[in-house]
Design a protein around this nucleic acid. Sequence first.
DNA 1: GATGAATGAGCGTTCATTCAT
DNA 2: AATGAATGAACGCTCATTCAT
Lengths: 230, 230, 230, 230
Amino acid sequence: MDSSDIHTEVGRLLNGPAYLKDPDSSETGRDILLFGAEMMACGGIESFTFRKLASRAGITEATVYRYFSNKHQLLLYLLNRYWNALEYKAMQETVHINEPLERLQRLAELLTGPVAQAGKDEFAGHLYAIAMSESVKVHLGTETGSDWQKGMLNGYARITGLVAETLRTANPDYPYPRAWAATFVDSAMQQQFLLRHLPELTEVQSAPTSLTRFLLSLIPQQESKEHASF
Amino acid sequence: MDSSDIHTEVGRLLNGPAYLKDPDSSETGRDILLFGAEMMACGGIESFTFRKLASRAGITEATVYRYFSNKHQLLLYLLNRYWNALEYKAMQETVHINEPLERLQRLAELLTGPVAQAGKDEFAGHLYAIAMSESVKVHLGTETGSDWQKGMLNGYARITGLVAETLRTANPDYPYPRAWAATFVDSAMQQQFLLRHLPELTEVQSAPTSLTRFLLSLIPQQESKEHASF
Amino acid sequence: MDSSDIHTEVGRLLNGPAYLKDPDSSETGRDILLFGAEMMACGGIESFTFRKLASRAGITEATVYRYFSNKHQLLLYLLNRYWNALEYKAMQETVHINEPLERLQRLAELLTGPVAQAGKDEFAGHLYAIAMSESVKVHLGTETGSDWQKGMLNGYARITGLVAETLRTANPDYPYPRAWAATFVDSAMQQQFLLRHLPELTEVQSAPTSLTRFLLSLIPQQESKEHASF
Amino acid sequence: MDSSDIHTEVGRLLNGPAYLKDPDSSETGRDILLFGAEMMACGGIESFTFRKLASRAGITEATVYRYFSNKHQLLLYLLNRYWNALEYKAMQETVHINEPLERLQRLAELLTGPVAQAGKDEFAGHLYAIAMSESVKVHLGTETGSDWQKGMLNGYARITGLVAETLRTANPDYPYPRAWAATFVDSAMQQQFLLRHLPELTEVQSAPTSLTRFLLSLIPQQESKEHASF
DNA sequence: GATGAATGAGCGTTCATTCAT
DNA sequence: AATGAATGAACGCTCATTCAT
């Protein structure tokens, strides 16, 4: 009825962890992440509940609540973790590449495979699946404008920003770099889904290079150069 | 909630309606569609329940169950209705266009605005919103392979097929027409979302031509021409 | 999470029933009132829950929720019922009494015994106990100013108003008729409590006339008359 | 929640503190009293929990349990403290007053304002608020006869006893001194409540003399004297 | 063909309490 | 002496669904 003062929302919200108690600080906490990631990845957040998680992880519901105040916070945390790891790796691996097209290729490769947080997360694969399936749901979610959404989209925005920036150096005249970046990132995820579940709807093959090649084919051509070549 | 045991008992599943009793056959049925579309569009399926629908439409829950065996079937029905109307219109409006690029432009236009089922559906706008937000969720949904998903994706598949076919005539050498078509359709929806809710993430403007132009910019260039230009 | 539109709060709030579905309209509803009254009377609202009520009445929790949206609404309803019955009887039985002191005596008698709603409520005794113990809690409750409190206090206010008015005719010069009326009514309840549970703290006896006599002793004397009598 | 098995293990129950470990013996203990009083006064015991208290006081729940075995014991302790302080002051300030009516006036004044335990309790105001609101709840509480109630009512009984005794000297013929004393004390608290929250139900004003005057008006007149005056 | 009444199961959350450290 | 971690049990509430009428 009241309880307005106990949810202290520990942890930075934007661009950082949001939790009540650092899940990395205990075995139980790590289990929550591990099993939570696995269950969300397999069954979707829709049907994911703390009850099921607790029984899966062999702990009690109340214990889960010591770490995350609700399942959305847990999802948020996991996704942030994924986006952060992705961003970090993207920065690290592209900073030394001068050729923008080559850089986009590297980004495409990163977007098409799971990314672990520096070896820490054995559940990187799960995080990847969650990010893929749930972030889109979030984009299209109904609770637009809420803090929760802002938290969700933050990582996504940073990645698309990175892609957009790269495209801008590759093709400064293209008028829609940000829109294109969003398409690029989502297409990477979408194709991954089609590849696995509806292969008859795409030519993309299971070999990772196949998807990368398709993604690169989306890069808009520099018209000016062509004109100049005459 | 788990929706793993969805009953398809009555009504053709593929390419057609799935219901227990034809909602178009009674005023009550039409109310279910009308209010159902409205409520799903506004609040998302997540929070949509037959309870709320019934109270909104001034009928009882039990009555709703006479038409649709659960909310997923209703969603399925509504989405199919949308895709069918869209496909129908797309066929009708592009069949006489010879120039494939012009055809793609028309398709892009159709994908970026609500489509009514030949005047029947006053709630076309709602259907469009649902299709936009929910179909993507469905694509990425967890119940892959279920009859339910197949039903969902059927309309989507036919539209992307149409787009792919058109692209193939426009650029026969492009190696990923189907993959591209999926990207094209989803990008149309995604940009619509960004435009409304996260305009800072895209250059696309609210003027409909803006989105259309961006979508056309995704069309892959004929490389042969470029080769020929040397 | 939303559910803001299903609680339609049927029934007039002030001075009337507040329920989702009229409990008098079904056997189940009447059981809810009966067992609810009994349980609240015995164990207090504190420890009263719909769960326990349901299991006591041999129905399910969900069924209880069809009638009352929460236990406070049920309590409110029961108390209103008591106050209304009391007020009705008070009006009926005092309207023909001309002598104000005699009227106060009748009111005191009414306040010191259970009042049934015209034979309808076999649980009048319970209602009385609840009214006695819980209404005071409500008076002193923390959620002052809420609609809930207003609903609670309405019946109380009408009774004290009646008493105050009567006193005013009996002793027009007394400067605190409303304050006195509140004291009068609460004292009736308090003494009833002491009599039962802490008899060593009061001289009032179990014979009903004993309490009535004490209450009448609280009536402030007309000083003017006495002076005039000289 | 049912509080039927309250442990009184340590500490004298009647007329003295009941605790596991003397809260006055440590800073932590004093914090428990201070914040506990504050929180109970503001939100009511209903919603008061050791969890909230602990987080407010910057300690752990487990620590609180070292001092008081449950929230009822804490409440009991605080109320006792209030009544004791009140009784002490009442004794001290009235012992030298010979005129019983004057004495009652002094008692009325004490009952209508906060009383500190000889400068020890900065939270006297809170104690007062708790005593006011909760003691009545206790009187009417459902757990009659329990040790817990006896503890609660002890201080109350001593105060009413004092008042009754005083009245007896003022008006030896009045047949209900104890009943009247209970009414007097409760009326003081009740009017205080009405004054603050429902001023339309009383003529008593915020000036302290107003309430005192009303309380004095409740003192029963010596009929014998009047008779004698003839 | 539609309704009213009811149910069983589950969810999210909080609480009082315990115990090893 | 105090903490951190965890638990079991309950609570309030909603949902999808069924069935007699």
